[in-house]
Design a protein around this nucleic acid. Structure first.
Lengths: 207, 207
DNA sequence: GTCTATACCACGATAGAC
DNA sequence: GTCTATCGTGGTATAGAC
């Protein structure tokens, strides 16, 4: 690939992760990448398309790995609640362990939590979510689809917030490596999936 | 309070919630509030201090209600794992039900998830987190503080992501009211707190 | 005390020279 | 493919009207 283009992607990934998309200026990016301002618009067309390229470059491989891990459960015939841990793991571990660079984790976290990507997020994550949903439905057919979708939503929120967390976030705590944190997160979410469905919904008050 | 000041707070809260802090311009705010640009710097001094005032105005009362609900568990002497649901509820319900305006919920969600407020977040939420931590430790003394802090971290992430979610987020799903979603979230998190601690930590590989 | 008018430099974006 | 110049808009600051 073009060297300038790659330097821009690296610099943008770092700064987007550190400060967020909106708070990062193109001039910060070109200063870090040591290229000309106009080269961004030559190679990418706009700041938003640069963001999209940054996302696709790293999230693509991560999602491939997630899907590969989820493949194991496509052939599962019988319900098996114990497998929930494994399908949660398939989504969490690739995101938290694929890249040793903690800066990239922050970027991933921001991508999930910042309200950007109204469209690009769907293109990038919807297939994964659908596969996860069908896998979850297979091992836990007793849970309604509505509840499963919300559980996935809660999972994404917890994961995004954790990806954004850096060791220095909790000064009082002993710093832990990513895999230990990942284990804590996977356990928390797996047990969340064991929660029974909220049956009683609010009804219109008639009097 | 001053009318101009209040109009600015309202407009800023709306736009920060809709587009995020960095993506919102002061000129958007003064256009919506129909006031002069310089009035922001007269009343608040800067965009960042405006954000702080917006946060304090609404989050203050919410946190007061949360603390009041947590007060019930200050006198708890004996461990009681079943009470976890109640202390989780004390944090979730005030945030999700105090204001019927869905726009404010988005703002609250962004406040938790956007990486802003390096200092203001601590001032605003640390006391609450400490109280929650001590309440959680009281009903679940079998869990280490490290694990409890991380569980709280996961809880905040799931809650923030849920506050940001709007009914239209999942087009395939039947729209649900906030209290139903809150119940699902509380159940998910409460069960997450029941997850046993991850004992085995990664150790240095010696060879 | 409260607000208006205006100026400042950095921002994203674009056109055109090389 | 790369760079310079430039445009409209962003946050910020201040002088002065009321």
């Amino acid at each position: 690939m073009n060297e300038t283009k790659e330097k821009l992607l690296d610099a943008a990934e770092y700064l987007f992760g550190e400060n967020g998309y909106s708070a990062t200026s193109l001039r910060q990016i070109i200063a870090l990448a040591r290229v000309n301002l106009a080269s961004i618009h030559y190679h990418f067309g706009s700041k938003e398309e640069l963001l999209e390229q940054v996302i696709l470059r790293k999230v693509g491989p991560i999602n491939e790995q997630r899907l590969k891990l989820l493949d194991r459960f496509e052939s599962e015939a019988a319900p098996n609640p114990a497998l929930v841990d494994k399908i949660v793991e398939a989504v969490i571990l690739p995101a938290m362990l694929i890249d040793k660079d903690p800066q990239f984790l922050k970027f991933m976290g921001r991508m999930h939590s910042e309200g950007l990507m109204p469209e690009i997020a769907r293109r990038c994550f919807q297939p994964l979510i659908n596969r996860f949903l069908s896998a979850a439905h297979r091992v836990r057919p007793d849970i309604t689809m509505e509840e499963l979708v919300w559980k996935i939503h809660f999972m994404v929120g917890a994961m995004a917030h954790t990806l954004l967390a850096r060791p220095e976030t909790y000064p009082g705590l002993a710093p832990e490596d990513q895999s230990t944190i990942a284990k804590r997160l996977i356990a928390f979410i797996s047990w969340g999936f064991r929660a029974p469905e909220v049956i009683e919904k609010d009804v219109e008050v008639s009097r």
